[in-house]
Amino acid sequence: MEQTAMGRGAGREVQLAPHELIVTKTDPSGHITYANRVFMRVAGYAEHQLLGKPHNLIRHPDMPRGAYRLMWQTLQAGHEFFALVKNATVDGNYYWVLANVTPDYDPQGRLQGYYSVRRPPSRGAIAAIEPIYAEMRKIEAGQGKASAPDTSRDWLLALLAEKGCSYQDFILGLNADVLKAKGVAG
């Protein structure tokens, strides 16, 4: 029986090298159709263990479901999505990424799937998002399973509205130094 990311222990952090990028592609339902070698090495999966599997195979239990609800709503509206994500490896370790997920359309405008490019986030960004995600998980634990992701997403959006920014602007702001050093931001 294959081990899945859900329900494993905390493990140790695996860090991407500053120059490394993780790249994956999925079909419209989120099943992996491509994974680069960096992803396979970091997550600890062989290609045959990934292709055709749901991308949430690497979901870490520390990630609030509300963050994924926000991601899917953004993507289904046709917009790209930036997030800080804690993923699980096959052996129970974890790694943080600054993820950029983009819808992929054919020439006729039909959704073909999603591209995701992930890079190492700043340590300060991780430190800033961890208490926010912890509060979202706490909110989710006090809710019914069906309503929990919406409730924690709404809390997150209200928190950021108080700060006068969107989730994407917040995430990009936390990582501005990393992106500027990579030549991604001006």
Results as ranks from 00 to 15, higher is better:
Leu111Cys: 14
Asn87Phe: 06
Thr74Pro: 08
Lys86Val: 09
Pro131Gly: 01
Ala83Phe: 11
Val85Trp: 05
Val101Pro: 00
Val117Ser: 00
Asn56Glu: 01
Arg37Leu: 14
Val42Phe: 13
Thr89Leu: 04
Glu47Arg: 04
Ile129His: 03
Tyr114His: 01
Tyr94Lys: 10
Gly52Trp: 09
Gly124Tyr: 09
Glu47Asn: 00
Asn93His: 02
Leu98Arg: 04
Ile132Gln: 12
Ala134Trp: 00
Asp62Asn: 15
Val85Thr: 06
Ala88Asp: 01
Val85Gln: 14
Gln112Ser: 09
Asp91Arg: 00
Asn36Met: 05
Pro103Thr: 10
Gly66Phe: 04
His48Cys: 10
His48Ser: 14
Gly92Ile: 06
Gln76Asp: 15
Arg69Trp: 11
His60Phe: 11
Gly113Glu: 01
Ser122Gly: 13
Met63Cys: 13
Thr89Phe: 04
Ala46Asn: 14
Phe81Glu: 08
Arg118Phe: 03
Leu57Trp: 05
Pro61Ala: 08
Trp96Phe: 12
Ala134Pro: 12
Arg59Met: 13
Gln73Ile: 08
Ala128Ser: 05
Phe82Lys: 07
Glu130Phe: 01
Leu50Glu: 10
His55Asn: 03
Leu111Glu: 11
Arg123Asn: 14
Phe82Glu: 10
Gly44Arg: 04
Ile129Asn: 07
Val85Met: 11
Ile126Thr: 08
Val85Asn: 13
Ile58Gly: 11
Ala127Leu: 13
Ala43Phe: 00
Tyr115Ser: 10
Arg118Ala: 02
Leu70Gln: 04
Pro103Asn: 10
Pro131Arg: 09
Thr74Leu: 08
His48Thr: 07
Val90Ser: 05
Asn36Arg: 09
Ala127Val: 11
Leu75Pro: 11
Leu50Lys: 07
Thr102Gln: 14
Lys86Thr: 12
Asn87Ile: 02
Pro64Asp: 11
Tyr114Trp: 12
Ser116Thr: 06
Arg119Lys: 15
Leu57Ser: 03
Asn36Leu: 00
Pro54Cys: 11
Trp72Phe: 06
Arg59Thr: 02
Arg41Val: 02
Leu98Trp: 05
Gly44Lys: 03
Tyr133Ala: 07
Leu50Ile: 00
Phe82Cys: 10
Ala128His: 01
Trp96Arg: 00
Gly44Trp: 06
Leu51Gly: 01
Val97Phe: 06
Asn36Tyr: 09
Gly113Arg: 05
Arg123Leu: 14
